[in-house]
């Protein structure tokens, strides 16, 4: 476990999550309603943003540090991670009603990586990057 990558990831995740909390407050003040009424899933989305930020940074570090940038499957994963981070930033800056679905969509790279891992386990391969 690389603690530096983990801590940096957690810091990034916390920053994004606090950004979301702040924008929620702004929206709530505009509408004159408490944020918990406006955003029903904020109890899950706030910790999700922290967790996902940490996961993004950690996965990014792993791919770069182990030379994954030379493999198509790893580059694909890299793009997905970037897209996921963009989606998460979007949910943080513009909280909306479809936040849950957007956040779920941003989980695609994690599922992708885990699927690769399962295939590697089954095929006795020493690497995740199959293609």
């Amino acid at each position: 476990m690389n603690w530096v990558a983990l801590l940096v990831g957690v810091a990034v995740g916390l920053a994004v999550a606090f950004g979301r909390v702040y924008t929620e407050l702004l929206y709530a003040r505009e509408r004159g309603l408490p944020p918990s009424v406006l955003f029903r899933h904020r109890d899950v989305l706030t910790p999700f943003l922290v967790l996902a930020g940490a996961a993004n940074i950690y996965a990014l570090w792993i791919i770069v540090a182990h030379g994954g940038v030379f493999k198509t499957s790893a580059v694909l994963g890299l793009f997905m991670l970037v897209a996921a981070q963009v989606l998460q930033l979007h949910t943080a800056i513009r909280p909306g009603v479809r936040d849950l679905e957007l956040a779920l969509a941003s989980c695609v790279p994690y599922v992708y990586l885990f699927a690769l891992y399962l295939i590697a386990l089954v095929t006795d391969s020493h690497t995740l990057w199959l293609f």
């Binding site: 899933h41 899950v44 989305l45 910790p47 999700f48 967790l51 996902a52 940490a54 996961a55 950690y58 996965a59 849950l100 679905e101 956040a103 779920l104 989980c107 994690y110 599922v111 990586l113 885990f114 891992y117 995740l128």
Partner: peptide, 15 residues
């Protein structure tokens, strides 16, 4: 969805 949101990111660390 609420469960998956907290589970999927941990997959990276699980690997």
């Amino acid at each position: 969805s609420r469960f998956a949101l907290l589970f999927f990111p941990t997959l990276v660390f699980l690997i």
